[in-house]
């Protein structure tokens, strides 16, 4: 709907609108939404500062082991984990970690898969054409066009966690972007029991992103900040992302400091996922994968509730699914080669 100026002025306080500002190349810089007056003021504030900071955005990462030479490898395999919030790619040389990346998932799963792989290989001269076996996993696994096989993220996380934390791991908690999984595995990383809650985003990375945006705190700082409370507050009563957001606004208005609100939300999230874990039981050793494993505020609270510590790994917890997929690819390629000889 396009209004002329007198119409806009007359409906200024109540009209629901979105206001966009753009620079000369046409790229949207700021967005204001709400009533007409609020939206315009939001957009103007954004323009004044140059661009709106999106606090939920976690940094994309990649790494390559330059001490390894892919040209000498007998088997090159890759795993792509296209999640609802992030996508990861892992490249293995003869079953050993060579390169990996973690990027934000866009609106197209095939593009996100390619973006993740290109990011992982950006400092190498290895290309997709030279990787004979790619396994796709995660929420968007069926949309990885260059994957030879797809495997569920449950099996891949178990396999990846087994590589990252060793054969003693028996319980894995994967806290993903929009779902949560409790997994039991054997010494080889084979799944023996699993439970998944994908009905709502409570206790997931997306919930944390919403909170980061609401409180205007970079998502990486939420965990450490939430631990700065002297006394643990009660958890927010609802972990439903929509209601928890409303509750957080109410708590801030009632005078709670930001750290206390964060502690309350992290505790609610920890209680939610431990309830899921307790359904299948927790056996030592315990390992956490997924983006939330990087949130020390949630991890410490889970450990306290369960009474056990999670194993640490030098590798990024977020790549466990892609790593597991790449390990599956390595085993499948080996099997294929054995079949041919």
């Amino acid at each position: 709907m396009i209004l002329d100026f007198p119409q806009l002025i007359s409906q200024w306080e109540t009209l629901p609108v979105h206001v966009f500002t753009a620079h000369e190349k046409g790229e949207i810089l700021t967005i204001g939404a709400g009533t007409a007056s609020g939206a315009v003021s939001g957009a103007i504030q954004g323009t004044a500062s140059g661009a709106v900071t999106e606090h939920w955005k976690w940094p994309e990462q990649s790494n390559v082991d330059l001490s390894m030479d892919w040209k000498k490898a007998a088997r090159i395999t890759a795993g792509i984990d296209v999640g609802s919030v992030s996508s990861q790619a892992v490249v293995l040389l003869d079953g050993k970690l060579y390169a990996w990346s973690s990027v934000r998932t866009g609106s197209s799963s095939p593009d996100s898969a390619l973006k993740a792989l290109n990011q992982a290989l950006k400092n190498t001269d290895l290309t997709l054409e030279k990787i004979p076996y790619v396994v796709g996993t995660g929420y968007g696994r069926v949309n990885v066009p260059f994957a030879k096989k797809t495997i569920t993220e449950i099996a891949c996380h178990a396999r990846g966690a087994n590589y990252m934390g060793g054969g003693t791991i028996r319980t894995i908690l994967d806290m993903g972007g929009q779902d949560c999984k409790a997994i039991h595995c054997d010494e080889k990383g084979k799944v023996t029991n699993f439970l998944m809650n994908d009905k709502c985003a409570a206790g997931t990375g997306r919930g944390m992103e919403v909170l980061a945006d609401l409180l205007r705190i970079p998502i990486q700082e939420i965990g450490p900040l939430s631990l700065k409370v002297e006394e643990e507050p009660p958890p927010v009563s609802s972990v439903c992302v929509v209601f928890a957001k409303t509750e957080a606004i109410g708590l801030l208005k009632s005078g709670w400091p930001v750290e206390k609100v964060l502690a309350s939300y992290c505790l609610a999230m920890a209680e939610r996922v431990t309830a899921l874990l307790n359904r299948i039981g927790v056996e030592k050793d315990f390992f956490i994968t997924g983006g939330i494993a990087k949130n020390i505020g949630v991890v410490k609270r889970i450990e306290r509730i369960l009474g056990i510590s999670a194993l640490n790994s030098a590798l990024d917890s977020q790549i466990a699914g892609a790593l597991g997929a790449a390990l599956f690819a390595n085993a499948l390629l080996e099997k294929e080669e054995r079949g041919k000889s």
Binding site: V191, T192, N193, F194, M196, R279
Partner: peptide, 16 residues
Amino acid sequence: MIANYGYTDGSGEYYI
């Protein structure tokens, strides 16, 4: 492998 399919919501736990 024991596979649990279902969900928990406000009214209870529904897993097969």
